[in-house]
Design a binder for these strands. Structure first.
Lengths: 152, 152
DNA sequence: TGGTTGTCTGGAATCGTTCCAGTCACCACG
DNA sequence: CGTGGTGACTGGAACGATTCCAGACAACCA
């Protein structure tokens, strides 16, 4: 967990070059997302507040929407989970999602650029992306349960 | 749109063999889903009511959950859309989703059974399914707009 | 036929997300 | 550097999809 992350990115310049204002709130959110991939809006809210910012829920959503709209972030909406956000954009990567705990992990695309796959039949669609979600059980959930642990 | 659909399936027997009671409400929902793939809960509600049933929203959800739980239906949760339900289960098919109108279309898997793909790196996950969503523009949305139509 | 219990009813609640009018603060320009 | 324009945040409220809950109903089996 103690790895170098995007604190070296010039976030103010990044925002401005995307046509956005470099507000304090946006910088806080970008810092947080850089350190915490696949965070929910609530994760972001709690995280930026823990870092000393005073932001409302709405402001968090506003910031996230602005970032996504400018292509600096994107959303992942796993079934049964509130929306998650990541700043890894501009590449064609996919996700592993754990059926147990909901953990989301990036995985590089082994095939190439979008669309990395084409459907058997396109039904008249012009396909521009093939989004792949690998469902399974993560290492933590695959571990045997501790015998003393009660099943709910 | 005038095609034969699952009206010939013995829905009562299907339900009972899955350990569920063959209630009128469930039969209505199965009939509707057979005719209308990828329907939202609201679609189902409106649809079964149009067919003469008097059902509450909660009953619709209860029925859908029971069907999904018994493996007779499954959910699709496209981003930005409420949950959708389909009765095509037991095969490994994928979906085309239109970025414009949200239309969801089934597409057969060209690769085989689950998991039809494996990730470049599994990060410790035991992968059991690779879900593919082909994003693009459907034929209807790809048509040129009518010149008199105002852009909003 | 009657009893059991899964399922539906109908009102209410939850939660993630968005709306909205007013205030604030970034930043371009003089 | 100061200032005005306007994008962005505030704070209260609303919305919609979904779930909760206690009681009534109805499928089904003996």
């Amino acid at each position: 967990m103690d790895h170098q992350h995007d604190t070296r990115v010039d976030h103010p310049a990044l925002l401005r070059s995307s046509g956005l204002r470099a507000t304090t709130q946006r910088l806080r959110v970008l810092d947080f997302l850089g350190a915490t991939p696949h965070a929910t809006a609530r994760d972001v809210l709690v995280g930026v507040r823990a870092a000393g910012a005073s932001m409302s829920t709405q402001a968090v959503y506003d910031v996230l929407h602005a970032l996504v709209g400018a292509g600096l972030a994107r959303t992942i909406e796993p079934p049964g989970s509130s929306a998650r956000y990541e700043v890894r954009v501009g590449d064609n990567h996919h996700h592993l999602i754990c059926r147990g705990c909901g953990d989301v992990t990036d995985v590089d695309c082994a095939r190439g650029t979008s669309p990395c796959l084409t459907p058997a039949t396109d039904h008249g669609f012009v396909v521009d992306e093939a989004e792949i979600v690998y469902w399974g059980t993560c290492a933590a959930c695959a571990r045997p349960t501790i015998p003393n642990e009660e099943l709910s």
